[in-house]
Amino acid sequence: MKLSIAAFVLGILFAVGLGIAGMTQPIKIIAFLDVTGDWDPSLLLVMASATLVYFLCYRWITQRRAPLLAEKFSLPTAKQIDARLITGSVLFGIGWGLSGYCPGPALAALPGLVPNTVVFVVSMLAGMLLFKWSDAWLSARRLEKL
């Protein structure tokens, strides 16, 4: 219960940060990505500011043996830079460039109920499900071949 309350409050803070930063406005994101056009460097400052804060907090927080409410830290362990990482990032970049939305800002913008935002979030969920099913199907086939 405490874990969920903390996550809920931090989700609100995250969304408010995204809104103030301008991340929920696709027009600003596309203006940042349009480096040969009328470039808007705001997003660079958002990333720098968020990353610097997280960098400092991370060093301090991970000196603890455990988080405040959970038994242990759950951190990514994968080390390899593989084809999945690169292909996935290329596809994500195309979608981000086309729409100006990445997952967090799209969810935070959803309550605005702008038709294109709703379509984006529904398609994003469909894309995630498509990945889940295709990935399960591919690994099953790989096992069959062995």
Binding site: M47, P76, A78, R84, L85, I86, T87, G88, S89, V90, L91, F92, G93, I94, G95, W96, L98, S99, Y101, C102, P103, G104, A106, N116, T117, V119, F120, V121, V122, S123, M124, L125, A126, G127, M128, L129, L130, F131, K132, D135
Partner: peptide, 20 residues
């Protein structure tokens, strides 16, 4: 936006992460 959503959903899962 429909195509972009699909690409973002599929791509972030395949690549294990997004902007955050």
């Amino acid at each position: 936006y429909a195509v972009a959503g699909l690409l973002v959903g599929y791509g972030t899962r395949l690549g294990s992460g997004c902007t955050s």
